[in-house]
């Protein structure tokens, strides 16, 4: 899933400083699963903003809504009625940053703000802890490395690791980061495939990644 976290409340308060009425829109997709922008988080943020503004004697009206997803146009269409029937000063999205862009793309007459920082593609290591697992390089090669990704999970994205900074299973960048090359070694050993690591992995073609510019996938069989 896409993992995100809420922006600092002061940053969001500064965004809405001049507004009297806003629409705060959550998303039931990834950001609900990572507890950043689902219905509950929309409620908490709305409440915090209202408390802060009421305290200043400058109340703000906030309508709350959570869409099925904010990365599909048909759900973004559901904002049409509320936007038509209310005089909102702005829309604040609690989706990953795809959401506010989809809203801005669909409605050209309303200001749109992100309330989350979109961080990475990852998963939950335990309840309340998420880690990065994939960088979306566009050409997955993890099967060469025991199923672990050296691009997203090695601080230097080394294809032929480890580097000299690997110590006791930890990365030299921080004792909080597992050295993925240590994990790759352990796993390949376990699988009886250590000899595969003797091969030098060729330079990766990054054109499938961001180096080729913004990417697009077209499925002719699905297109209307």
């Amino acid at each position: 899933m896409i993992v995100a976290e809420r922006k600092p409340i002061k940053e969001i308060l500064a965004m809405v400083a001049d507004f009297k009425k806003i629409l705060l829109v959550g998303c039931k997709g990834c950001v609900t699963v990572c507890n950043a922008g689902g219905t509950k988080e929309v409620g908490i943020l709305a409440s915090a903003l209202k408390i802060a503004r009421k305290k200043e004697g400058n109340p703000i009206e906030i309508d709350e809504m959570t869409l099925e997803r904010q990365c599909d146009p048909e759900y973004i269409d559901q904002l049409e009625e509320p936007l038509k029937n209310n005089n909102y000063d702005a829309v604040l999205s609690m989706a990953c940053s795809v959401g506010p862009q989809f809203i801005a793309r669909r409605y050209d007459n309303i200001l749109v703000y992100p309330t989350l920082n979109t961080c990475f593609m990852g998963g939950a290591l335990e309840h309340g802890v998420w880690a990065e697992f994939c960088q979306g390089c566009g050409n997955c090669i993890i099967h060469h490395f025991g199923g672990l990704c050296p691009i997203a999970r090695c601080s230097k994205s080394l294809m032929n690791g480890p580097c000299g900074g690997s110590a006791g299973g930890k990365c030299e960048v921080s004792p909080d980061i597992d050295c993925v090359w240590h994990l790759i070694y352990d796993r390949m050993k376990q699988l009886g495939k250590l000899d595969q690591l003797r091969e030098i992995f060729p330079i990766k073609d990054w054109s499938t990644s961001r180096d080729g510019g913004p990417r697009k996938i077209v499925r002719e069989d699905l297109k209307k």
Partner: peptide
């Protein structure tokens, strides 16, 4: 007791 319960009481 949810965060929202506490927030709504304060609000």
């Amino acid at each position: 007791v949810d965060i929202l319960h506490l927030m709504h009481a304060l609000e």
